[in-house]
């Protein structure tokens, strides 16, 4: 393993350089996905800002020297994002392009998730901080050998029969997750 001091300098530089590169995803301080200007974002791509926001907020927590820089981006983006949440029967469904300042008519789970994440990420400094075994605060039970020897061989998979029950279960699950996301978004937005 690399020497501690060198290692921390190296990873600090890498973090810093990625922060600089990530500026490409902001227009006037507002986050956007590169597919947005073309109007051709697929369903997955419409959720990408969710993960990016999550990763930025985690970085602000993990690397304190990035905090002010990242939180300014999150705050500006959240203010813009919430302006798109004017659609649907409730008048609170959010759009895709936060840079426009209005609802662009693109509605769905990804759009809702992204706005939920950018709004709630403003609370990152109120969160209690990550736990770990190293800090002595880790409480989650682990298993260093978990998943070893599991069936990832394709010939075994070919024998698996998907039952109607599985499909129904998956459908119910999807519905629950969507309800959770939408409910959470509505709560956050109405509460704000």
């Amino acid at each position: 393993m690399m020497h501690q001091t060198n290692g921390s300098v190296i990873w600090k530089e890498r973090t810093e350089s990625l922060i600089t590169a990530s500026k490409a995803f902001f227009l006037n301080g507002i986050m956007y996905e590169p597919c947005e200007p073309t109007g051709k974002c697929n369903v997955d791509q419409r959720s990408f800002k969710t993960y990016f926001t999550r990763q930025l907020a985690a970085t602000a927590e993990l690397a304190p020297w990035t905090y002010d820089n990242i939180m300014a981006e999150i705050e500006t983006s959240a203010m813009a994002a919430v302006k798109t949440c004017t659609a649907g029967t409730t008048g609170t469904q959010c759009g895709l392009m936060w840079t426009t300042g209005t609802n662009d008519g693109s509605l769905g789970v990804g759009e809702q998730m992204s706005v939920l994440e950018i709004i709630q990420s403003n609370l990152v400094d109120q969160a209690p901080g990550w736990r770990s075994d190293v800090k002595g605060t880790g409480t989650s039970s682990g298993d260093a050998n978990a998943g070893k020897g599991s069936k990832t061989d394709s010939s075994q998979l070919a024998q698996i029969v998907i039952t109607t029950g599985d499909r129904v279960g998956a459908g119910i699950l999807t519905a629950l997750v969507i309800c959770g996301v939408l409910g959470g978004s509505a709560t956050m937005i109405l509460g704000g």
Binding site: T15, S22, F25, Y51, Q55, A58, L62
Partner: peptide, 26 residues
């Protein structure tokens, strides 16, 4: 193609490694 979450996933991992390296005894 460049997507937000590809940069973000490496950014968060790099910040995590920065923390890890500082947390282990030399």
């Amino acid at each position: 193609n460049k997507w937000t979450y590809n940069t973000g996933i490496f950014l968060m991992g790099a910040a995590t490694m920065y923390n890890y390296v500082r947390s282990v005894p030399p």
